[in-house]
């Protein structure tokens, strides 16, 4: 479904991603784990078209997307929940959700999806006329995920959704991620520093170090891999 082949991404003259190869099939939950600064966020931003790759190729459902405008990439069904949530602070919760559906024209279904969101996260319904910037961290993460769902993505990119949240809320958010993966057949690409959590939710995983993919295996095997356990699971 999504395939990165020999991707080399740069910020100015600084190379961050080095020959990255990733492949994701439809319906999977794939995780990318790695230390802070490894290049995980850069990988997602390259997929979304905000960071250019100087060479290599990204294809999505048979289309080459690495030269596309970010809004074109969204229109193909790739939505991102970025690191730090990036809620529009002076748009209301409703307007933030509306922005998620920016490229959709099926008004009726947008309404329905909105109700679906409020079922998933009743707290957002209570806060719907509040500015996004006034929500708590956990509520903002829920809103960020909801905003991405409003696009009805076929591929959902999630960048550290657990960051800075209380364990209870993290568990709730991971339940929802699994739920939309199963119910909507949304393929999920999950970036996490919390490797334990991510590998338990995912089918397969990639390990990134200094901009390179150093390991890829089933989530099960990675969880029992000696090196992974030492480096990322603190065991």
């Amino acid at each position: 479904m999504l395939r990165l082949r020999n991707i080399n991404s740069f910020y100015g003259n600084i190379q961050v991603l080095k020959n990255v190869n990733i492949e994701i099939s439809r319906g999977e939950i794939i995780t990318l784990i790695g230390a802070n600064g490894a290049g995980k966020t850069t990988t997602l931003m390259t997929i979304s078209g905000l960071v250019p790759s100087r060479s290599g190729e990204i294809t999505y459902m048979g289309k080459t997307i690495h030269n596309m405008r970010p809004d074109r990439i969204v229109s193909l069904g790739i939505s991102q929940v970025p690191e730090g949530r990036k809620i529009f602070p002076y748009l209301t919760v409703l307007e933030n959700l509306d922005m998620g559906a920016f490229l959709r024209t099926d008004k009726k279904n947008i309404k329905k999806d909105m109700e679906y969101i409020f079922d998933l996260f009743p707290i957002l319904s209570q806060r719907k006329n509040q500015f996004g910037g006034t929500l708590s961290g956990g509520e903002q993460q829920m809103l960020a995920i909801s905003r991405a769902i409003m696009a009805r993505p076929t591929l959902l990119l999630l960048d550290e959704p657990s960051l800075g949240l209380a364990p209870l809320i993290v568990r709730q958010i991971f339940e929802i991620i699994k739920k939309i993966n199963i119910e909507n057949q949304t393929t999920v690409f999950l970036v996490e520093q919390n490797a334990n959590l991510a590998l338990k939710a995912a089918h397969r995983g990639y390990v990134m170090e200094n901009g390179r993919i150093t390991l890829s295996d089933s989530a099960e095997n990675l969880l029992s891999n000696e090196n992974v356990r030492k480096a990322y699971l603190g065991l």
Partner: peptide, 15 residues
């Protein structure tokens, strides 16, 4: 408004 508040995020929702 979205673009004024966060240009990159606006791109990520398809603006």
């Amino acid at each position: 408004r979205a673009t004024a508040q966060d240009r990159n995020m606006a791109m990520l929702v398809g603006v």
